[in-house]
Structures are given as structure tokens and as C-alpha cells.
Amino acid sequence: NTKMVRFKKGDSVGLRLAGGNDVGIFVAGIQEGTSAEQEGLQEGDQILKVNTQDFRGLVREDAVLYLLEIPKGEMVTILAQSRADVYRDILACGR
């Protein structure tokens, strides 16, 4: 149940992230009207890879910085997997 989305970065990627470290990086929110939303990313999706950067094992701050450093107008390719069950557990633990 993995999906790959590809879009051109606007002012931002339009994602709020949660998790990090051993639990993985998850989409915690999506800005309305962004390409990330239009391409089908959803809250609870685990981000496995962005462009050439493996997101598994990253701390959340490093994942956020990586997304911020992608220049506006560059193509962004995100490999994600729907993991809403794991995401709910992360929220319940306050991570």
C-alpha cells in the first residue's frame, strides 16, 4: 500500500510532520490547496523517502529542515505508505 506522489514545490511543501526516530515520519496535517493535497497525501501517511533522502530513522527536525531546503519550483517526489493505525498510536503516546 505504498504510493508515490510527485509535484513542483510551491512556497512550501504543505505538510505538517509528526513522529521521528524509531517510529518514522508521518503526515500530521496537509495545507489545503497544496500540490501535496491534490496528489493524494493524507494525514497518517508515513513518509518513507523524499527525492533521494530516506526518511526512515530521521528525527522530525531533520525531516522538516530537508523539506524546507528544497528550493521553490523544484520537483518533489515522495514515497509514502498509509499507516493510519500506527499514526493513531503515535498520537496517543504524544509523540
Results as ranks from 00 to 15, higher is better:
residue 36 A to E: 13
residue 27 V to C: 07
residue 43 E to V: 15
residue 70 I to N: 05
residue 25 I to A: 05
residue 40 G to E: 02
residue 61 E to L: 04
residue 52 T to G: 15
residue 4 M to P: 02
residue 68 L to R: 15
residue 19 G to M: 02
residue 24 G to E: 05
residue 72 K to E: 09
residue 30 I to S: 01
residue 54 D to E: 07
residue 28 A to C: 09
residue 29 G to Q: 09
residue 18 A to H: 10
residue 40 G to C: 03
residue 77 T to C: 10
residue 35 S to D: 13
residue 6 R to A: 05
residue 34 T to M: 10
residue 88 R to W: 11
residue 73 G to Y: 06
residue 73 G to P: 00
residue 30 I to G: 02
residue 61 E to A: 07
residue 36 A to P: 10
residue 38 Q to F: 13
residue 15 L to R: 04
residue 56 R to S: 10
residue 57 G to P: 04
residue 54 D to T: 07
residue 80 A to L: 07
residue 78 I to H: 02
residue 80 A to C: 11
residue 23 V to F: 07
residue 81 Q to E: 11
residue 52 T to F: 01
residue 74 E to D: 11
residue 83 R to S: 07
residue 7 F to S: 02
residue 83 R to I: 02
residue 7 F to V: 06
residue 54 D to S: 09
residue 55 F to W: 08
residue 25 I to N: 07
residue 82 S to L: 03
residue 40 G to H: 02
residue 57 G to Y: 09
residue 53 Q to C: 12
residue 4 M to R: 09
residue 66 Y to H: 10
residue 87 Y to Q: 12
residue 39 E to N: 13
residue 34 T to L: 08
residue 10 G to C: 11
residue 24 G to M: 03
residue 48 L to Y: 11
residue 58 L to G: 05
residue 84 A to K: 12
residue 34 T to D: 10
residue 37 E to P: 07
residue 13 V to T: 10
residue 45 D to E: 00
residue 88 R to Q: 12
residue 55 F to N: 00
residue 68 L to N: 15
residue 68 L to K: 15
residue 15 L to K: 03
residue 45 D to G: 02
residue 95 R to V: 10
residue 80 A to P: 04
residue 43 E to C: 09
residue 23 V to E: 11
residue 45 D to T: 01
residue 8 K to H: 06
residue 69 E to C: 07
residue 23 V to I: 12
residue 65 L to E: 15
residue 71 P to H: 09
residue 64 V to N: 12
residue 35 S to W: 10
residue 3 K to T: 02
residue 60 R to Y: 15
residue 73 G to L: 05
residue 22 D to V: 03
residue 60 R to D: 00
residue 79 L to F: 14
residue 9 K to E: 07
residue 18 A to M: 13
residue 37 E to C: 14
residue 71 P to C: 01
residue 88 R to D: 12
residue 94 G to R: 12
residue 10 G to Y: 06
residue 68 L to C: 14
residue 57 G to T: 10
residue 93 C to P: 14
residue 16 R to T: 15
residue 67 L to E: 04
residue 27 V to F: 00
residue 18 A to S: 09
residue 95 R to T: 14
residue 38 Q to P: 02
residue 69 E to F: 01
residue 74 E to N: 09
residue 22 D to S: 07
residue 4 M to W: 07
residue 47 I to Y: 15
residue 26 F to I: 12
residue 81 Q to P: 00
residue 30 I to W: 06
residue 60 R to A: 13
residue 25 I to T: 02
residue 91 L to I: 14
residue 41 L to W: 03
residue 27 V to W: 06
residue 54 D to G: 02
residue 69 E to M: 05
residue 43 E to F: 09
residue 65 L to F: 05
residue 78 I to G: 03
residue 58 L to N: 01
residue 92 A to N: 14
residue 48 L to E: 02
residue 40 G to K: 06
residue 52 T to M: 09
residue 91 L to W: 10
residue 57 G to W: 04
residue 34 T to G: 14
residue 28 A to F: 01
residue 66 Y to R: 07
residue 19 G to P: 05
residue 9 K to S: 01
residue 53 Q to N: 03
residue 8 K to V: 13
residue 94 G to Y: 02
residue 21 N to P: 15
residue 88 R to T: 11
residue 90 I to C: 10
residue 14 G to V: 04
residue 52 T to I: 05
residue 53 Q to S: 06
residue 13 V to H: 05
residue 83 R to P: 08
residue 73 G to Q: 07
residue 64 V to F: 12
residue 10 G to S: 09
residue 27 V to A: 05
residue 14 G to Y: 04
residue 26 F to P: 01
residue 42 Q to L: 09
residue 84 A to P: 15
residue 94 G to N: 15
residue 14 G to T: 09
residue 37 E to M: 11
residue 22 D to L: 01
residue 49 K to T: 08
residue 53 Q to H: 06
residue 21 N to K: 15
residue 3 K to A: 00
residue 32 E to R: 13
residue 47 I to N: 00
residue 82 S to P: 14
residue 95 R to E: 14
residue 85 D to N: 12
residue 33 G to E: 02
residue 23 V to P: 00
residue 70 I to L: 07
residue 76 V to H: 03
residue 48 L to K: 02
residue 85 D to M: 11
residue 28 A to Q: 05
residue 29 G to V: 01
residue 37 E to R: 08
residue 26 F to H: 00
residue 33 G to R: 02
residue 75 M to T: 13
residue 94 G to L: 02
residue 28 A to P: 07
residue 74 E to S: 13
residue 10 G to P: 03
residue 77 T to Q: 09
residue 90 I to R: 13
residue 74 E to P: 01
residue 3 K to C: 03
residue 89 D to K: 15
residue 71 P to M: 04
residue 8 K to G: 06
residue 95 R to N: 15
residue 8 K to Q: 13
residue 92 A to W: 11
residue 33 G to V: 02
residue 92 A to T: 13
residue 82 S to V: 01
residue 70 I to V: 04
residue 41 L to P: 05
residue 1 N to Y: 13
residue 72 K to L: 07
